[in-house]
């Protein structure tokens, strides 16, 4: 068992645990960071969506041993700090559209939305319905209509 070290939401952490434990459980069960949610454990529901070095990924499907010392993990808790505000523009858009119902999927939805907007821009266009169709995050409460609107609003402020 070795000690793994990396950065979570701007802070360096040290975790002594078996290398094959998936990062989601290190975040939730060991570090007590509860924003990333469990919904499947096999990279299909996307409730655990967080960022690694600014890109969306699913920590339920990554071994902690595969995270490198310089890697920066951002969960929903750390998203506002990435823009130096109380809330990220995407979170503000979520509030304005009153997107959440039970809220369980929403940290993942927001993290996915932010990355999707950036990805579209890297490809040289603004986020479109076709891009939103590619987002795989499930919402069992069915908030998709408001998510679609909020992503477009949030993108304008990003």
């Amino acid at each position: 068992m070795r000690t793994h070290t990396f950065i979570v939401n701007g802070e360096r952490v040290h975790v002594k645990i078996e290398a094959d434990v998936r990062l989601l459980w290190v975040l939730r069960d060991v570090l007590g960071i509860n924003g990333p949610k469990y919904g499947c454990g096999i990279n299909v529901c996307k409730a655990c969506t967080s960022h690694i070095n600014g890109k969306a990924f699913n920590p339920c499907s990554v071994r902690v041993g595969d995270i490198k010392g310089g890697d920066e993990i951002t969960t929903i808790e750390g998203l506002p700090d990435t823009v130096g505000e109380d809330l990220h523009p995407m979170q503000k858009a979520w509030l304005e559209r009153d997107v959440a119902q039970c809220g369980y999927c929403q940290p993942g939805q927001i993290m996915a939305a932010v990355a999707k907007v950036r990805q579209a821009r890297d490809e040289g266009h603004e986020i479109s319905d076709a891009d939103i169709d590619e987002i795989r995050n499930i919402c069992r409460c069915g908030t998709y209509a408001r998510i679609r609107e909020a992503i477009k609003d949030g993108a304008e402020k990003m």
Binding site: I76, Q91, L95, D98, V99, C102
Partner: peptide, 15 residues
């Protein structure tokens, strides 16, 4: 708007 909206979108809502 929902009274728990802020908690939900910041990951602070507790289940």
């Amino acid at each position: 708007n929902r009274i728990d909206a802020l908690a939900a979108i910041t990951g602070r809502k507790t289940f």
